[in-house]
Design a binder for these strands. Structure first.
Length: 569
RNA sequence: CGGGGCAUAGUAUAGUGGUAGUACAUACGCUUUGGGAGCGUACAGUCUGGGUUCGAUUCCCGGUGCCCCGACCA
């Protein structure tokens, strides 16, 4: 490729609105262009890289017997109603319909812009594969996905439209699913290894979300621009996504005798932050108490140390319910006799179920709401002022400094960007679409499914986040837009000749044939980040050699043409 | 969803109730060629709807969009 012909060709100003390194470099170097928040055009350089990333993904999916298909982005609402009304439950779902009167006059249907394809592929498979001989079956596609993210940010790390590989597997039994699921982990590890981010990508246990009660597995690449917090158990290497990290609170121990409990009037003092200023105590002494209502019609009184937040998903599990929500102020008052803000673990009404987080364990002289409006109790102690519960629960959102309960070691915490995610769907979607196969003995049996995603555009961003220096991107060879960036300084035929020779050999070359100062060419080559920089100038011609430098190495070599051609294949 | 900021040329920005300036980019010419070259010439701009006003890019109100922080995020 002649750089003089490359679109867009010249550099953009540094986009100062962008915060993430990947967005800055990719935009400035002309790999992507922003249309609007979370929506990007992939330009020729970027498309070359994305192709390579996706081809690597294809090879690895093919290796586990995936067959590539391409499903539509537009889909009928009907499919999304069948699966437990995902049409109304998925809060990032987009719809598409005629944009104007005339268009709607012709066809007034409303479609879904797919954010994932379980709801499309399950009926597709059901239509065609229903004998036990047909399984296992794995289908995948690489395609644009649409998600109405509350906040798109960090360039292509989190977009509203993005490309993703999604594979769906179908099995006769849980064992079959399990076997394939484990195989997919290996395929994913290969993908990230080949993309050059393998060492920093950790398989991480995460919530199955709506999909499944089991854990799902995320592939989290350690990276500052990442949006997830990952907790790693050092001794075993096991990683947890923050949302499900089992956590034991960091200890808060003070050596002091039990003090007299007293009620302190603090009108309008409600939040923990106000409370610690008002009472002049450590935040760890405070107690946050909330009342939840459950789908079973129960009320839960939930207490946690002031420096923690409640994790509602954990709470659901502990309480054995599907759904909870904060009870309305009116109901709270009726139940506890106190306004929201003054409820607490003292004088708990009989009707509520009490759940105390383990962060409350072992504290002395702590603060707690008194279930009396405008009053807070201080120097509260278990055993004297209230009964110590038989059991403390883990219902908090983990935070830095927390301890892995099983071994007592402190977690290593890092930010991660989720480049892949795999889900054991089990029978969620096959039940919804009544997808059964006929077994050997003629009986009908339910199909087991898994789904497996890799965000290819996000992966491209993450590669840049990991592999760059202050001058620009350092692409791994496997995904670099070109292997060689050939630069001619001054006009010379030799460069043109070498360009043609390399091309004939099948080496991908970006040839900077522009009339520009050497400094400018070098700076741009560093920014674009091809693995090899080859320079031909009056200086090298004099020596009868060709200058070669690797992007990730400061060493400059002078080779003759033969040496060069055998070095770069 | 809450809080904050912004919208002027292709890009980045300055400024003004009456005539909008600079840099980069682009085009042309001359010079220049090992770490973002120089000189000259040319081209090119006030997000949108309404209001106030003789007159609005500027002031006021709405809309749209963008950025940041937080919440959320299968």
């Amino acid at each position: 490729m002649l750089q003089s012909k490359l679109f867009p060709g010249s550099l953009k100003e540094n986009p100062k609105d962008e915060v993430s390194v990947s967005a800055k470099y990719l935009i400035r170097a002309g790999f992507i262009d922003k249309l609007m928040a979370g929506v990007y055009t992939i330009l020729p350089l970027g498309w070359k890289v994305l192709h390579k990333i996706e081809d690597i993904i294809r090879e690895e999916m093919d290796a586990i017997d995936g067959q590539e298909v391409l499903m539509p982005s537009l889909s009928p609402q009907e499919n999304w109603r069948k699966t437990a009304d995902r049409l109304n439950k998925i809060d990032v779902l987009f719809e598409a319909r005629g944009a104007n009167k005339e268009s709607r006059r012709r066809n007034d249907a409303t479609y879904v812009l797919s954010c994932t394809h379980e709801d499309i592929i399950t009926p597709l498979a059901k239509k065609m594969k229903f004998s036990y001989k047909d399984f296992p079956l794995a289908l995948y596609q690489i395609q644009a996905k649409f998600r109405n993210e509350a906040r798109a940010k960090s360039g292509i790390l989190r977009g509203r439209e993005f490309r993703m590989k999604d594979l769906y597997s179908f099995h006769r039994s849980p064992e079959g699913l399990k076997k394939f699921y484990e195989k997919s982990k290996g395929a994913y590890a290969n993908v990230f290894e080949r993309l050059g981010i393998g060492a920093d990508t950790h398989i991480t246990l995460a919530s199955g979300g709506d999909f499944t009660k089991d854990y799902s597995h995320e592939f989290q690449t350690e990276c500052e621009a990442g949006e997830d917090l990952v907790f790693k158990v050092k001794s075993s290497g096991v990683c947890y996504n923050r949302e499900i990290t089992p956590s034991q609170a960091s200890e808060f121990k003070v050596k002091e005798g039990l003090k007299e409990m007293e009620l302190v009037k603090g009108e309008g003092v409600i939040s923990v932050q106000e409370l610690i200023k008002f009472l002049k105590i450590d935040i760890e002494r405070t107690t946050k108490t909330l009342v939840y209502e459950t789908d079973q019609g129960d009320f839960l009184l939930v207490a946690i140390r002031g420096d923690y937040e409640i994790n509602e998903e954990k709470l659901c599990k502990v309480a054995g319910v599907e759904r909870i929500w904060l009870a309305e102020a009116k109901k709270v008052k009726k139940l506890t006799g106190a306004e929201v803000g003054y409820i607490g673990v003292l004088n708990v009404p009989k009707k509520v179920k009490l759940f105390m987080d383990d962060s409350l364990r072992g504290r002395v002289n702590f603060e707690a709401g008194a279930n009396k409006t405008n009053y807070h109790a201080v120097n509260v102690n278990f055993g004297r002022d209230l009964e110590e519960p038989k059991e403390f629960y883990d219902i908090k959102t983990a935070k830095e400094g927390d301890i892995f309960p099983e071994t007592g070691e402190k977690y290593e915490v890092f930010k991660g960007s989720e480049v892949g995610n795999i889900f054991p769907l089990n029978t969620k979607f096959s039940e919804a679409f009544d997808y059964r196969y006929t077994d050997k003995d003629g009986s009908k049996k339910i199909v087991y499914m898994g789904s497996y995603g890799i965000g290819s555009t996000r992966a491209m961003g993450v590669i840049v986040e990991k592999l760059h220096d202050d001058k620009g991107i350092i692409w791994p060879e496997a995904v670099a837009p070109f292997k060689v960036h050939l630069i001619s300084i001054g006009e010379n035929e030799k460069a043109q000749e070498l360009y043609e020779k390399l091309q004939t050999k099948g080496v991908e070359v970006l040839f900077d044939d522009r009339d520009m100062s050497p400094g400018g060419k070098f700076a741009e080559a560093d920014l674009i980040g091809c693995p090899y920089r080859v320079v031909i100038s009056a200086k090298t011609l004099e020596k009868g050699k060709i200058e070669v430098k690797k992007r990730n190495d400061d060493k400059i070599e002078f080779l003759n043409e033969e040496e060069l051609l055998s070095k770069i294949k």
